[in-house]
């Protein structure tokens, strides 16, 4: 296998987890019951999308682990064809911050509001270090003229860890069904 092919065929850990949809109804994680873990994960996701929807983007990088993290928005079309190109691809906390600085200070784009709706939050696997969690999302976009459209639909594939008592994303992979972007994509999903 050539280095190029190898690089193209490598998949992230969340992909592998997504394939094993285990019936994971009962477990204990960090002394939390399955129900409590589920509740905490849903709280994390709700706080995450509120941060984006309320345009509190300066705090968005705080949802990720500090040392190593990975944030990716990639189209389902590219994923299903085994192609790695993403719409956004950050491999460090610094890159997350750079995205926000860029959209605040450099980029020009029409003002619009995002509204995230999350559902089907499913803890797929549990081990000592992390939770693998899949959920569905829809982002509604409202333009300045008041018109609301579905901007993006897809799923989150999250690797969640406990860091100093707080749940953080060590990896967040946004797999976008809506692979034809409407004009541009500025803010994270």
């Amino acid at each position: 296998m050539s280095p190029v092919s190898e690089a193209l065929s490598s998949t992230s850990t969340t992909d592998k987890a997504a394939k094993a949809l285990l019936p994971l109804d009962d477990f204990t994680w960090n002394s939390w019951s399955a129900m409590e873990t589920q509740w905490r994960v849903e709280r994390l996701l709700s706080r995450y999308v509120a941060c984006i929807d309320e345009d509190d983007l300066e705090n968005w990088p705080e949802f990720f682990t500090l040392d190593t993290c990975r944030y990716e928005i990639i189209t389902r079309e590219n994923v299903e064809r085994g192609m790695p190109l993403a719409l956004m691809f950050c491999t460090s906390r610094g890159m997350l911050v750079d995205r926000i600085v860029s959209l605040r200070e450099a980029n020009i784009y029409p003002q619009r509001w995002y509204r995230h709706i999350i559902s089907n939050v499913l803890i797929q696997s549990v081990d000592a270090e992390c939770l693998q969690v899949q959920s569905n999302y829809v982002v509604l976009q409202t333009r300045r003229n008041g018109q609301t459209d579905i901007f993006s639909a897809g799923k989150y594939l999250d690797r969640i860890v406990l860091s100093k008592g707080e749940l953080k994303f060590s990896e967040k992979r946004v797999v976008v069904d809506t692979h034809r972007v409407d004009t541009l994509l500025v803010a994270p999903i």
Partner: peptide
Amino acid sequence: SNLLGPCGMVSMEDAAVFQ
């Protein structure tokens, strides 16, 4: 995945300008 095109940090303005 980060610089050019409709999601790129350095040139997403193009998309806004087309419209």
